[in-house]
Design a protein around this nucleic acid. Structure first.
Length: 292
DNA sequence: CACTTGACCTGTCCGC
DNA sequence: TGCGGACAGGTCAAGT
């Protein structure tokens, strides 16, 4: 799914497109996708204004004027797509990924007072939107456990990262950086890209990686994700920005992810796809060697 | 406690 | 062309 750069890109789109709009109706097409009591939806969502669009880890938070918030996890295939009125549609980029909405993956539709709409689409139905009091958002189990944000520039981050990842000394470095309690936001794409950049084999045990190398992996992850946000994230298949357009990080910058069979940009060795931590994993077998 | 695996769903692609 | 199996950007609940 959307990893941190994709979720952040969606957040920026929502900040531009839906903050300031008043919700007039909500239609739930798949009950499991929307977790809220009917009473709460009527009392605290309908009639509310969206006042802020925030993100923590891969979780999106739309704060409402009622002191409630819509909290959303896109998981693998979730999308939040905004559609404005006809005038807006006329000026819409021609590479729009979602032609007409709602479509068969639409699970929730939010209507705004000016006639515009926000659609929650999710092919695989793993994602969710919850309505809960703003003050309770931080109490969600996931947000209680999640590790530090990687892109804030906090000078304490490397220290905290090392501390947390050392709890996972027995597992592989790839499993460890995918663990959201170690550091927030890294997913399968940026795990592979970061480990390639840092020249570490994904199946290396954490205990066999020095603190200095771990800091190098963190620095690589920060660099890769920062760069991705600048290109609007990575589109594999389902990910799109809030305005319905694709991100182009993968085409422009991916070095190994989904590039099996192609030459490594550093040494020209053929990139391989293997399986690590139960996930498809892309490596350069020359740059990323596993110590015996 | 920490690690690995399967489950949650739908869709697509690949080999027979 | 049809069918079964593997796989897909994430997390969680089980199992060991």
């Amino acid at each position: 799914m959307p990893e941190l750069p994709e979720v952040e890109t969606v957040r920026r789109g929502l900040a531009r497109l839906v903050v300031g709009k008043k919700v007039t109706d909500v239609q739930v097409l798949n009950a499991k996708s929307f977790q809220a009591s009917e009473g709460d939806a009527k009392a605290f969502l309908v009639g509310a204004e969206v006042i802020a669009a925030r993100r923590r880890a891969k979780v999106l938070i739309l704060d409402l004027s009622t002191d409630y918030s819509l909290v959303c996890h896109l998981k693998m295939t979730g999308q939040l797509v905004f559609r404005g009125d006809e005038d807006w549609a006329a000026g819409h980029p021609t590479d729009s990924f979602v032609a007409s909405l709602p479509d068969r993956s639409t699970r929730i539709e939010f209507d705004f007072a000016d006639g515009s709409k926000l659609f929650f689409n999710d092919q695989r139905k793993f994602g969710w939107v919850k309505l809960l009091p703003t003050a309770e958002v931080e109490n969600l189990d996931f947000l209680q456990k999640v590790g530090p944000e990687p892109l804030t520039g906090d000078p304490e981050l490397p220290k905290e990262f090392i501390q947390r990842i050392r709890r996972r000394n027995g597992t592989t470095i790839k499993a460890a950086i995918l663990d959201q309690t170690v550091v927030a936001g890294i997913g399968n794409i940026y795990a592979d890209e970061s480990l390639w950049m840092a020249k570490v084999h994904p199946a290396t045990r954490v205990r066999d990686v020095s603190d200095a190398k771990l800091k190098g992996i963190l620095a690589a992850a920060i660099e890769v994700m920062t760069k991705s946000i600048k290109s609007g994230g990575s589109t594999m298949k389902n990910y799109i920005r809030a305005d319905g357009t694709k991100g182009n990080y993968l085409d422009k910058f991916a070095n190994v992810f989904r590039r099996e069979g192609q030459p490594c940009p550093r040494c020209a060795t053929t990139i391989e796809k293997i399986r690590v931590a139960g996930r498809g994993t892309h490596i350069c077998p020359h740059c990323q060697r596993l110590k015996p």
